[in-house]
Design a binder for these strands. Structure first.
Length: 333
DNA sequence: GTTCCACCGGAAACGGGGGACC
DNA sequence: GGTCCCCCGTTTCCGGTGGAAC
């Protein structure tokens, strides 16, 4: 039944983007100077998870690469590359200029100097999840680098700017902004249909079932595509040539659990212990949480580090921190 | 109204791991 | 082999906040 499993991967960049014409045009216009060998203005892509920001950024940059001979591009995920050093390193990787750079001995400033010394063809850098940067000052460094054009992807504009210093905010104030709204059910169903047509055999899924998935995903294309993939996998396991409604319905919670499992797998052992304690309690106050954690592990980290871990868990959407100060409680998301 | 205290998170310091250099 | 330098995870220190107790 599966013809091309790649298209069922949420990371897959399709050859045509569905229901984002306005956003594609806006981004193409922003990148237009690159076609004349000039740098593009800094552009923000804002919107909730699963609204196609990353997909569209990669798609548009891909189109640009097809149209322009002299261009360099790089994608940097700031969730994984959260320090100034790692961002600059990834950017130099895109220029093939990391050959003599050593993780443990080359100062960050040397990396920056090398990026700033670049004077080749336009270089378009996509900084995804830019609100996860621990050292946003790197944006200032890059802003001052003439040949580098930045596409900055983030969920919420307010959250991103709240974490930046005034100097950077004023510089970025005039930058172009493209906003993404959540997909409607019809739009999501159309996105799924396009993937089914390319990735599965004909009539593998009914339109009504695609609408069911779209509805359950609540506007999040990533969840919708994961659900479709989970359903296709289960139907394949059962040796079916179509995905029945019962499998579709079972795939909805399965896809959400899979996303959560992936997030849990990325945690360090101490972070997992904290998550388990919160899960066991349902809702737990900080004092009890810290105390239980200290009892449960042989080499507990300091309370301050625990707070850093808890913030990490919250950013992963694994837990929720409710209330302030003494009223603070933690619960699983 | 004042004091106490639990909690948060920023900033700086510390130390481990590892590569470069002599 | 010893020393220096760097990144990065962690700890230490501490100021801010606001509810509880007096």
């Amino acid at each position: 039944m599966i013809r091309d499993a790649r298209v069922l991967d949420p990371e897959f960049v399709p050859s045509e983007v569905v229901h984002r014409d306005g956003e594609v045009d806006a981004l193409s216009n922003a990148l237009d100077p690159v076609t004349d060998g000039e740098p593009a203005e800094t552009t923000f892509l804002f919107g909730p998870s699963g609204t196609g920001k990353t997909c569209l950024a990669r798609y548009t940059v891909g189109q640009l690469r097809e149209a322009v001979i002299d261009i360099r591009t790089q994608y940097v995920n700031c969730w994984q590359n959260y320090s100034r050093y790692r961002v600059l390193y990834r950017i130099l990787e895109g220029l093939d200029r990391t050959i003599d750079i050593h993780r443990q001995s080359t100062p960050t400033d040397v990396l920056l100097e090398r990026v700033q010394a670049y004077d080749g063809p336009p270089y378009v850098v996509v900084l995804d999840e830019v609100d996860q940067l621990e050292e946003p000052s790197v944006l200032y460094d890059l802003y001052r680098t003439h040949e580098v054009s930045m596409l900055l992807v983030a969920n919420r504009e307010e959250d991103l700017f709240a974490g930046l210093d005034d100097r950077l905010v004023s510089r970025l104030h005039g930058s172009r902004r493209i906003r993404f709204e959540k997909y409607g059910i019809d739009e999501l169903a159309a996105i799924l249909r396009a993937r089914v047509d390319r990735g599965l055999t004909e009539d593998a899924v009914r339109d009504a079932d695609l609408r069911y998935i779209a509805d359950a995903a609540a506007g999040d294309a990533r969840i919708a595509i994961s659900t479709l993939r989970a359903a296709a996998r289960e139907a394949g396991r059962q040796g079916l040539d179509r995905i029945p409604e019962s499998v579709i319905r079972g795939a909805v919670p399965e896809a959400r659990q899979e996303i959560q499992r992936k997030n849990l797998d990325q945690l360090k052992p101490h972070q997992k212990v904290l998550y388990e304690i919160i899960e066991e309690h349902g809702t737990v106050d900080p004092g009890t949480l810290y105390g239980t954690y200290r009892e449960r592990v042989s080499d507990p980290r300091s309370d301050r580090t625990v707070r850093t871990y808890l913030n990490k868990l919250a950013t992963y959407d694994l837990i929720v921190a409710e209330g302030e100060n003494r009223g603070r409680v933690y619960r699983v998301a």
